[in-house]
Design a protein around this nucleic acid. Sequence first.
DNA 1: TAGAAAATCAACCCTTTCGAGGGATTACCG
DNA 2: CGGTAATCCCTCGAAAGGGTTGATTTTCTA
Lengths: 209, 209
Amino acid sequence: MTDDVRIRILSVDDHPLIREGIAAVIANEPDMELIAEASTGREAIQRFREYRPDVTLMDLRLPDISGIDSLIEIRAVNSDARVIMLTTFEGDAEIERALRAGAQGYMLKSMPRKQMLETIRRVHAGKKHIPSEVAALLAEHVGEESLSKRELEVLQKIAGGNRNSDIASLLYISEETVKGHVRNIMEKLGASDRTEAVAIGLRRGMIHL
Amino acid sequence: MTDDVRIRILSVDDHPLIREGIAAVIANEPDMELIAEASTGREAIQRFREYRPDVTLMDLRLPDISGIDSLIEIRAVNSDARVIMLTTFEGDAEIERALRAGAQGYMLKSMPRKQMLETIRRVHAGKKHIPSEVAALLAEHVGEESLSKRELEVLQKIAGGNRNSDIASLLYISEETVKGHVRNIMEKLGASDRTEAVAIGLRRGMIHL
DNA sequence: TAGAAAATCAACCCTTTCGAGGGATTACCG
DNA sequence: CGGTAATCCCTCGAAAGGGTTGATTTTCTA
């Protein structure tokens, strides 16, 4: 048994049950080893510094820092870090941000063990791995214009029940400008009104409540 | 070793990782035994009929039938069935529906193992068990009027980006009636406009996208 | 680093829709 | 019977939404 070739894994998730599940799946694999766990983003970065895992499994939503921000931090520590995002099905916007931030893989909690293990092995081998369901979701919106920073800000305010005039005050711009942003948002998302724009933004993971 | 006093458990969740986690947690307990698993609502009802578990752990959202509807089905088979809902934090509306439908316990995926095991033991002993965080969430809205069936229908249509006149056609009622419903909805939810009403409805688990 | 492209800001006009008032009728349920 | 839900009607001012144009700044890229 050559212990030193084992893939050293760090798992990050705030749900004990999930971490337990990951531990159980990995425990059965002779070529893998769970070396550390974390339940928050801050802890994840800490553990990464200490253990330098070969592969990090990271939940997208964590109580303190978001999974994506944690991922960025970790890659700042080591730009070769191999990180796999692990989530239930979120919107395509989150997935894209994760990949753009440098995630090598994307794993769904609904995937069978076999596929999860394969993903870990492939990513450890230096390949990127995105499940076909996820790829299909991404493909649905390729070429579409994405919302600008400002537009996302405005959309978030709309979701909070603010009128255009309220948003204008909050962002220190004129109401006319807000209306312009709102029109662009609806146009880009294909929404028929502001309410649907919020619904689509939420579904696609662009904004959160 | 008295095998026959073991708590016989059925776990229902569409995420293999979660089922794996549950299995791992239970495996360490001498007084519990995982006798069956299911990944869909239909399968859950089937397994319940076959195995008659002492306690059923059921995820709130399942691919086919919702966890609540599965719960109702199961309690139709056996009104003494002890079922614990297992979810990430959803809105208070879902929790209330689950409890109203006869769930004896509510378990959060973010709970530590110890509390989970305690919940299982308490529910098996015939007691109800709701974690304090969940109870607090429920308490936040006690006494508040809940949305009527029709109002929920209207709210769902609003979320889809429909105008009042569209909703009127869809539901075969006049636009004036729709406006009346919309006003009641905003009043009851404390929303300043229809968009915020949708946001609140989503957050509290009254509607889904 | 110069120039193009995008984002942001702002203004005009005009139509449609919303949201807040008011009040009223039917039907069902405990 | 009282309460609640659901239905419908009217008015009216305030927002939202659609079209267009243009100036300024930022950002990207050739």
